[in-house]
Amino acid sequence: MNLMEHMGIEPGRLQFSWISSAESTKFVETVKSVTQAVKAIGPNTTYKKNPVKVA
């Protein structure tokens, strides 16, 4: 994660969580908070491959 942020991925876009299959509440909360955080950052415009230019 450190290197990803070092090369320009916005902090918060890449997140890691450890959730047991029994922790449904934590799973829901994590999904919510990740979604919220990523929405706040906005669409990923950098680390995204564009179609090959043909002309």
Partner: peptide
């Protein structure tokens, strides 16, 4: 982050 991206 934008500067880092551009730097690399």
């Amino acid at each position: 982050p934008q500067e880092k991206w551009q730097y690399f």
